[in-house]
Design a binder for these strands. Structure first.
Lengths: 345, 345
DNA sequence: TTGTAAGCGTTATCAT
DNA sequence: ATGATAACGCTTACAA
């Protein structure tokens, strides 16, 4: 545990002043003679000097750190998102402090409080929908905000990056309708989330467009966390006029639903056609492989950090930026015509 | 974007000095009269004051931030580990900066370099095995180290938290032997990792104990990343004297192996019995559900942050701490007696 | 018990 | 092109 060299040590060794060293450190912040620069660089190298982040940010008021507040790393979608965001951040030499909400407003509030210490210049988050005031307070102290995957409508100064939820849900619905399905169930997230609402809208629009009246009893809102998905699908299948197909638009619940269906021994796609949001690696491992909607995680990651960094550097005009990227429907073997469906024509 | 209040503002409002405010901030760092404290607390509350992390750490030389350097969040094992570690950290009010190596020594080196800015007081990592010098340099500037899941033997001052790898592999091997298997394949990680070596050792010991001579051609070392697992299992099954069972002891490759096996249409367990390290949620979703070794991720997380924090607070005597936790073998339906196996007795 | 003042390691302003 | 020097916001002796 040696005491680390400071900028002064470097200046001394290079026979110059701290200001000069600082200038070569922050390239372009002032004039430096070529050979002076060389000497400084050598001194830095020789001492293995590294500027201390805390001092830097205290003095400059800036940080090269962003916060990443995700729902839950246990969910493969968020895990992969985190992976890509961290990668994207590294390539730009910025660090990421990671926090999770567990979809719990209180935990989210805790995280927001922690973020108030100005250790980050901006944050990328999947908000729970609550804590609007704390989010605003965070913005007020100068922290830029980018919401990814979902948004909070009342927070108008936060940028948003997400997939085209309505359209994706619509695509899936159309596909099922095309196979002959009339009674299509939808498991979606809480309607308090933008994601849930959009997916529902896309689903209903597709139905209406095909001349089918949406049946509200076929729509279930399931919390992101917990076992809700399993129960919902079970109750759906217990209905008298039960659905012949289901779209699981709640990314967090697809594993639960799959497990329950497999436990119940419901033959897929014979008795029930299935489409899941989020193309996890394992959806093609199960029997049958599941048709799914692949969210372009790379794009979500790229745009969220790109947007945030541009904001932090003041490169963007004020006003919310809303970026939507396309998701891709992938047909596998979990969909077929409904039972007893006769091809007439 | 208001300018935030400083400790001086608080002192002023509370009609006292900054040192007093500082003392109530860091409870116990000095005497404060009860009613003075009350006034300070009120001022803090009223101004919504939050101490700035950078100033604090610059002045005190300490940080409430740790680094978490993991291989790859794409792997469910690491993702869940990250989730638990972040949770454990939050409950102690410490922040986590996340980085990934992608099992790449160069990326690891980059991260290590970034860590040199003393923004963290310690790091929890799954090392690649390389960059020994940089790890040492990190320790030299006072950053404590805890390796989790694997270790680097030459780094004797880093604590280690992992599962009992040898024993777990041994258990799985014994189980298969008990079913009548003689030719048991092992897919394991690179032998440059402690994990790979330990699992191999446990496997061999179990074999020898049962009077079976280990056959090196049945052991495959597969890199953590990439598609190696699939090819390995395929080549194993192409052998003349092919194995009747396989243990996939490379956590990162279980999905690849499963996919390949399913593509090849190898009947499990009829033609091949299978045991996988790491009990992902989806291993019970596939057909048949896979027998697996469940790693106690909560324990790994708890001990690694506990250990690290104690180190950082100097509460631990010097000398490496090596904590091993038990993993649990879970029998499902992917194992059976080998083909053509006659029960004689 | 309280307050003053000297750092902590940078950046940035302003002379030189 | 270079170099003093004053912040930045906090902790911590050391006085009072």
């Amino acid at each position: 545990m040696t005491k680390s060299p400071t900028i002064r040590d470097v200046a001394m060794l290079a026979n110059t002043s701290v200001s000069v060293v600082s200038r070569v450190l922050n390239d372009g912040s002032g004039p430096v003679a070529p050979d002076t620069r060389a000497k400084v660089l050598e001194a830095i190298d020789q001492l293995a000097y590294r500027p201390r982040a805390a001092a830097r940010s205290l003095s400059s008021g800036q940080t090269t750190t962003i916060g990443l507040l995700l729902a839950d790393l246990t969910n493969p979608f968020f895990a992969r998102l985190a992976d890509r965001i961290v990668g994207e951040a590294r390539s730009r030499d910025i660090q990421v402090v990671l926090m999770t909400t567990g979809e719990d407003a209180n935990l989210e509030a805790d995280s927001l409080k922690a973020l108030l210490d100005r250790s980050v210049g901006g944050v990328i988050a999947t908000p729970t929908g609550a804590n609007v005031e704390q989010w605003e307070k965070l913005q007020k102290i100068g922290v830029d905000l980018v919401f990814v995957d979902r948004s909070v409508d009342t927070l108008e100064n936060a940028d948003v990056v997400s997939i085209e939820n309505a359209r994706s849900a619509g695509d899936a619905t159309e596909y099922l309708i095309g196979l002959g399905h009339k009674r299509i169930a939808l498991l979606t997230g809480p309607l308090s989330t933008s994601t849930g609402r959009s997916r529902l809208k896309g689903y209903e629009q597709a139905l209406v467009a095909a001349g089918i009246t949406p049946d509200p009893t076929l729509v279930r809102n399931v919390p992101f966390r917990g076992e809700g998905g399993g129960d919902s699908i079970a109750s759906l299948l217990a209905m008298a006029d039960k659905p012949t197909a289901a779209i699981i638009a709640n990314t967090a619940q697809v594993a639960n639903v799959s497990r329950r269906l497999s436990q119940m021994g419901v033959p897929i796609p014979d008795e029930l056609s299935l489409i899941v949001f989020d193309d996890n690696p394992w959806v093609q491992l199960v029997t049958p492989p599941l048709s799914s909607i692949r969210q372009p995680i790379d794009m979500l990651a790229f745009h969220s950090v790109d947007l945030l960094l541009n904001r932090m550097q003041g490169k963007l005009p004020s006003g919310r930026r809303y970026i939507e990227v396309q998701a891709e429907f992938i047909a596998r073997n979990s969909c077929a015509a409904p039972p007893n469906y006769l091809i007439t024509r």
